[in-house]
Design a protein around this nucleic acid. Structure first.
Length: 422
RNA sequence: GGAGAAAUGGCAGAGUGGUCGAAUGCGGCAGUCUUGAAAACUGUUGAGGGUCACACCUCCGGGGGUUCGAAUCCCUCUUUCUCCGCCA
């Protein structure tokens, strides 16, 4: 969530930038400022009363000590009114704080200057394109047909044991998945990211820290018995590693990578776009995450983009990079680059990575700070990205590397798979 | 799952109703001494709100209660440890 002091001193900019998301935030921002002023006024009043009653209590204590019981009892009577007042004030104060927070939860992050205005993914700005779209032979198939032909992914079996969106990988399909995970992790650790194995279920506080809660709980599977959520992305446990941390400036930057399965309810998705591996309830993903000094975070974002590019170049897949427009930008993000791989057989682009700078938006909720050069506590910037999401990369490989004789394995993966053809 | 014990500042650890935001030690920072360093000595060292800055307020695992007054008493939740049971 946004910081109130920031809103107060940058009101015009905040409203202007939020307009890129097609939000007129004028009213909300005004209300935030009014509620905050109100809150501070109440706080000051309450503090005064508490101060008075603290003094009285001390006096009473001293009187008891010196044996002046009657005087002490007389003073006791005075405290009851103060108590009543302070109770009322603190109730009012709590209401204000709650109202303020509820409002703040509804305000998305302020888009960066680079974010183009726009409504839908049509308005995203293509900033890079690489890789040749291969000319496929006659009779080239979409990946779900290839999966069947070569018996490497079984969607029906997943259907039987769980339901739609939970495919079963088998044989060389399973091995290829494992190879991709190992390859991605190796690339990430070689680039300085520390590998973590993270919990796949998280508590409410963690869901809140990264912005899934409140409001977006419908996207996550919820284990009500224990009030835990299945992670929709490793971003949630990875970012929450640093919840409530007060770091030294020298601890920054922090770079983390981890592989986890991801679980998404994807309520409301339907049709051809959920065919095959396009959209699943459970999928594998390797994530990279950075905790950065505010002055460096956009350099870090570029480094992450370059890193993901490096991987896709090695895999020799056709891909493009989009800068998301305001309408398509995630709630918590200030600037996001999406990577899409070209699905030749489907003739469409599939999102395989999303690299974002959240600036202080998550850090504020997480209370993730560092001590700056002046000795003041300052919020860190958090960033994360996929490197990479497995199913669509797999789809891209199957479709783009298919030949009449079988599916070639990208050269960099062969040491991991142990075979060069399916 | 059952029984018991515990949770205090970066860490260790005192504090069982009244100048306790909290002794002491370690660590950190600054200074003295030193050519420099170490050692020694001296000082300093939690967070949030609030203020131009002070003042002031809140925080001793979380929440609630008793009391004029709670780190200290009561209730509750969570976590950790020990023992028993079960178990990949």
């Amino acid at each position: 969530m946004l910081q109130v002091p920031f809103i107060r001193s940058n009101k015009a900019t905040v409203i202007k930038q939020l307009a890129k998301r097609n939000i007129d935030a004028t009213e909300m921002i005004d209300e935030v400022i009014a509620l905050d002023e109100n809150r501070r006024g109440l706080q000051t009043k309450l503090d005064t009363i508490l101060s008075e009653s603290n003094n009285l209590s001390k006096e009473i204590g001293n009187l008891f000590k010196s044996g002046e019981v009657q005087k002490a009892n007389a003073l006791k009577e005075q405290t009851s009114q103060l108590k009543e007042e302070s109770k009322q004030l603190s109730d009012q104060l709590n209401q204000k704080v709650e109202a303020l927070n509820e409002l703040l939860y509804k305000i998305p992050n302020v888009p960066n200057d680079l974010v183009p205005a726009g409504n839908t993914d049509d308005d995203n700005e293509e900033v890079f394109r690489a890789g040749e779209t291969p000319k496929l032979h006659d009779g080239a198939l979409p990946h779900w047909e290839l999966a069947k032909t070569y018996d490497i992914i079984d969607f029906e079996l997943g259907n039987k044991i769980t339901g739609a969106g939970f495919p079963v990988y088998k044989g060389k399909g399973a091995k290829l998945q494992r190879a991709l995970i190992a390859y991605f992790l190796d690339k990430n650790t070689a680039a300085g990211y520390t590998e973590y194995q993270l919990p796949h279920l998280v508590n409410e506080a963690s869901g809140f820290g990264t912005g899934q809660l409140p409001d977006k709980e419908g996207q996550m599977y919820h284990v009500t018995e224990d009030n835990l959520y299945l992670i929709p992305t490793a971003e949630v446990p990875a970012t929450n590693l640093f919840r409530d941390n007060l770091l030294n400036e020298s601890d920054l930057p922090i770079a983390v990578t981890g592989y986890t399965p991801c679980f998404r309810r994807e309520a409301g998705s339907y049709g051809a776009h959920v065919r095959g591996l396009n959209r699943l309830h459970q999928f594998d993903k390797v994530e990279i995450l950075r905790v950065e000094h505010p002055t460096r975070s956009y350099d870090a974002l570029n480094e992450m983009v370059e890193h993901v590019k490096g991987i896709l170049n090695e895999l020799k897949l056709p891909y493009r990079i989009l800068r998301l427009c305001g309408g398509d930008l995630g709630f918590t993000s200030a600037l996001t680059y999406d990577f899409e791989v070209f699905s030749t057989a489907q003739d469409r682009w599939l999102e395989i990575s999303s690299v974002s700078n959240f600036e202080t938006f998550q850090a504020n909720r997480l209370k993730l700070r560092f001590k700056n050069a002046e000795g003041k506590n300052e919020l860190c910037h958090t960033l994360n990205g996929s490197s990479l999401a497995l199913p669509r990369v797999l789809a891209g490989i199957l479709e783009n590397y298919q030949t009449p004789e079988g599916i070639q394995i990208p050269e960099v993966l062969v040491p991991y798979t142990g075979f060069d053809k399916i």
